[in-house]
Design a protein around this nucleic acid. Structure first.
Length: 481
RNA sequence: CGGGGUGUAGCGCAGCUUGGUAGCGCGUCUGGUUCGGGACCAGAAGGUCGCAAGUUCAAAUCUUGUCACCCCGACCA
């Protein structure tokens, strides 16, 4: 006899009690990842990888729609090649992993395992770009990169991670800037419409920008513990790399010119963001569009005649609608266990169907985000589920937006600023003089960094919140992952 | 690299102060009864107590050394 337990039970640490522990509990118990024997590297298990595959699919469709093609460049980069762009090397030097041996022989020149591929891609682009007719060159690659991190956390910071990096070449500065903004726009649209995560977009400060970029743009999301996470970046590289790697083309006017470039990327870190934005006390909450299983069908009292058959029939109808559906027909665990497991794993919708329902021609549909149960007629179940999945998406986006807004504060002076960072925790909007020195001091004193200078500027005052000098920009500050 | 902490069954931990040859919860396996919110009963398997040396009749426990991992800082998608 199953225990009639009205209280829902969870086996994960409370979010409020220890957010970091909660995060670890969720990713380990939901079968997303496992720790490997390699320091700082995670194993992405099938359930976690399926999420990444869906992210890839959604993004690829967007990249293709904006004229980009996929390619693949080598994992290993000769030291000499990597070292050409000074600012770039300086930025990445501390975290590059090196290959020094080939078989039993010491290599004459060490090979870097790519921390990012600008250098190797630019070295190829210099061969490929000769004429204005070759431009724009719009490529993307899906790959792994390695950065030797001192402290790591699954998805958020691992020594090796998966990402996509777009690298484009343009004839004019204007084209490059347009591309930079366009791709940030693609990421932003993706964040809202696929991940259901509200973001703040804007430009990075000099201190925070990508090593070797002219300008870096970013989208920043806020996690439930009030820390910010950079979810994607888009860089206008200007002619920095073109000059170093000699990417020149003959323009319409017969002049030989250096090309303008961009690069942009998002990584498996996004999955960490999804967990920390949407997750709750019961575990994961996956946005329907990237949920490997959108609907789990649970037969109740499945040993009784006709139940499994009816549940399978229901599955088939939904699969035919193009939904990702699974039937949990295990007879080794109780129904209650399955309910909890569905919630833990963040499956957006589950359907319970048992003898009583079959008799009445209905099923019970439960939304993961609200845990609301509704009785739905089997006759038009396909349309209803579509509708409910859309409602779940909108519901979690709304909730996440409210969460972000409730954790976004204004600071007119430095005491307000410190109070907001230390006690309230979240985004803090404040005016800034534009000096790196000020940023450094603020970080030293509060732990907060500038996240971005948002495109949507507001005038909160005329002076810098820290030094009191004339203010140039409104900035989002936060402690960040 | 600075500061702190932890290593005992697959996972989470207790035992250590005051030495006496290892235990709890979860999980796993077997059988049965269950199955509409993490079922129950009965039985079973599983540990050179991180590693090494020392003290002792006797070490998970005391001493010394060593290794590994985790957290907080510095650095970063």
């Amino acid at each position: 006899m199953a225990k009639k337990n009205e209280e829902f039970v969870t086996h994960i640490t409370s979010r409020d009690e220890d957010f970091s522990r909660w995060y670890t509990d969720v990713i380990m118990q939901t079968d997303l990842v496992d720790y490997s024997d390699v320091k700082g590297c995670m194993v992405i298990k099938p359930y976690g990888y399926a999420i990444w595959e869906l992210i890839q699919k959604e993004l690829d469709a967007r990249f293709k729609a904006t004229g980009h093609k996929n390619a693949y460049f080598p994992l290993l980069i000769p030291e000499s090649l990597l070292k050409k762009e000074e600012e770039h090397v300086e930025g990445f030097a501390p975290e590059v992993a090196w290959v020094t041996m080939g078989g039993n022989e010491v290599l004459a020149e060490r090979l870097a395992i790519r921390p990012t591929s600008e250098t190797i891609i630019c070295s190829m682009y210099s061969k490929w770009v000769q004429s204005y007719r070759d431009l724009p060159l719009l490529l993307n690659q899906w790959c792994n990169v390695v950065r030797w991190e001192k402290s790591t956390r699954p998805f958020l910071r691992t020594s090796e991670f998966l990402w996509q990096e777009g690298h484009t070449v343009h004839a004019t500065e204007e084209d490059a800037q347009n591309e930079t903004m366009k791709m940030l726009g693609v990421y932003e649209e993706f964040a809202y419409n696929v991940l259901a995560i509200p973001v703040v977009t804007g430009q990075k400060s000099e201190k925070e920008k990508f090593a070797g970029a002219e300008r870096t743009y970013t989208m920043e999301a806020l996690m439930q513990d009030g820390k910010a996470l950079q979810m994607g970046t888009s860089h206008n590289l200007g002619q920095h790399f073109a000059k170093v790697y000699d990417i020149k083309f003959l323009d319409k006017d017969g002049q030989l010119k250096y090309a303008y470039q961009t690069s942009w990327g998002v990584s498996t870190r996004m999955i960490g963001g999804i967990i920390m934005v949407h997750g709750d006390e019961r575990g994961l909450m996956l946005p329907p569009k990237i949920a490997p299983i959108q609907v789990m069908v649970l037969p109740i009292a499945q040993h009784k005649e006709g139940v499994i058959e009816k549940a399978q029939e229901l599955c088939d109808i939904l699969i035919a609608k193009g939904l990702r559906v699974e039937l949990d027909d295990r007879d080794t665990v109780s129904a209650g266990f399955k309910f909890n497991e569905c919630e833990l794993k963040g499956i957006p919708v589950r359907i319970e169907i048992g003898p009583r329902d079959i008799e009445n021609g209905v099923c019970i549909v439960v939304r993961r985000d609200t845990l609301e149960k509704q009785t739905i007629e089997l006759t038009n179940i396909g349309e209803e589920i579509d509708k409910i999945l859309a409602e779940v998406h909108n519901g979690i986006l709304k909730k996440a937006t409210e969460m972000r807004d409730s954790k976004t504060f204004l600071a007119k002076d430095y005491s307000e600023f410190k109070d907001a960072i230390e006690n309230k925790k979240g985004f803090v909007k404040a005016m800034w003089c534009g000096e790196t020195e000020c940023e450094l001091q603020i970080k030293e004193e509060t732990g907060a960094t500038t996240r971005c200078m948002p495109f949507e500027q507001e005038n909160l005052g005329n002076v810098c919140v820290h030094c009191g000098k004339p203010a140039k920009k409104m900035v989002y500050y936060a402690k960040a992952y």
